[in-house]
Nucleic acid binder design. Structure first.
Lengths: 208, 208
DNA sequence: TTGTACAAATGAACACTGTTCAATATATTT
DNA sequence: AAATATATTGAACAGTGTTCATTTGTACAA
């Protein structure tokens, strides 16, 4: 009964072929300029074939989102895992997040900015699973900071995780969408990391 | 010599007609679904006419951006101007920003998320003028907080303004792009404002 | 009033887009 | 070899931004 298996494998191969081509074009030319026809011609298939593997362009986008998340976001948290001090680990995570976001703007847009209309509930689960894991690791880290005596005991983990996430996301996305250009500062990247450090110092000492 | 004047006025009227129609459709159907042909048919002109007043769709978008900024962002800062205490004024500004951002997601996307490719340098200046004013008012507010003894004296105004802006922008945009859905929290809006309040308490007291 | 110059508006045309689907080609099973 | 099932095609549809030769409408001089 190896034939059905091989068929299934071949289907999956084509599906991956499409996804990789889509990712290549997407990273090179951005979302707006990634067309079904371009993807199809790159892998030497007809446009119609793509619709045999992905319902529509949006589903393809969601698949790209998952791929980006799985590949990069996980490693972000794993790389800092061996930093023993929870506060230092938290800081390192924030800096890595910012660095990744500005180094891979297309990926970042896909993961945290683009609103791909997600109708199918099943897809929703897929979409969020890795993200939920990331948030949980962040919350675990905050909890460790509390247990280590860095933070107060009465803090709400959801609130603090959102606080941290939205701070780094805010800086990253303002930079990536070129909104930091209102600041007449030459080295914007240095400016961002400096500001992030100020944030971390505020976290422990406050602004007063 | 009133004829040339009238002609100029008529030109400006058509230009405004286009802009208002564009804004209407944009707010109703979003950026993606705002087409030149829709705008043209709404004001009963031909598609080509729009290109006599705006170089391309991007320039029309920039004009919309300016309008949104002028109308709303200014009033945001003016409305809180009569709050005497600088720290309370700062908090009120943040809350108003968040409220406006979640109440007007299309406008917010236009102002702070969409990256309209801005090639013309002249346009750039137009693009930023109101934004720079907003940032300056924010910096003034921070300065007032320092002078009132709420914040330390050695703080960098650029850093603190970015810190504040990116925090509220981060929360706002994560909500508007539906990224807060990873949190299994029923009332997301309440959650955001709660988190923003935690941020303000941290600013003065720290997390420790 | 007529003719001419000039600006404004048109709408067909071009090259693209996402998506569908009857027709065709290929591979497997009987 | 014939029948069946699956994979692939590419033309077609309705839409997009943008351009430009052509037409329309107005203003001024003869």
């Amino acid at each position: 009964m190896g034939i059905a298996e091989r068929k299934e494998r071949e289907r999956e191969e084509v599906k991956d072929l499409i996804l990789n081509a889509a990712r290549e074009i997407f990273l090179r030319e951005g979302y707006e300029n990634t067309s079904i026809r371009k993807i199809a011609s790159q892998i030497e298939y007809s446009p119609g074939t793509i619709y045999l593997h992905y319902k529509d362009k949006n589903e393809l986008l969601l698949a790209l989102h998952d791929k980006a998340f799985e590949c990069k976001m996980k490693s972000l948290f794993i790389d800092v895992q061996d930093i023993a001090d929870p506060l230092e680990r938290l800081k390192a995570t924030g800096r890595s997040y910012l660095q990744y976001g500005i180094d891979n703007p297309q990926d970042y847009e896909l993961m945290f900015i683009l609103t791909c209309t997600m109708d199918a509930l099943a897809l929703k689960e897929e979409f969020w699973s890795d993200g939920a894991m990331a948030i949980n690791m962040l919350k675990e880290n905050v909890k460790a900071c509390i247990e280590a005596g860095y933070f107060r005991k009465d803090l709400n983990l959801d609130e603090i995780s959102l606080l941290l996430w939205s701070q780094v996301h805010g800086i990253t996305s303002l930079y990536n969408t070129e909104r930091l250009n209102i600041y007449s500062i030459e080295d914007k990247k240095e400016f961002m990391f400096r500001t992030l450090d100020v944030f971390f110092s505020i976290i422990t000492h406050g602004l007063a």
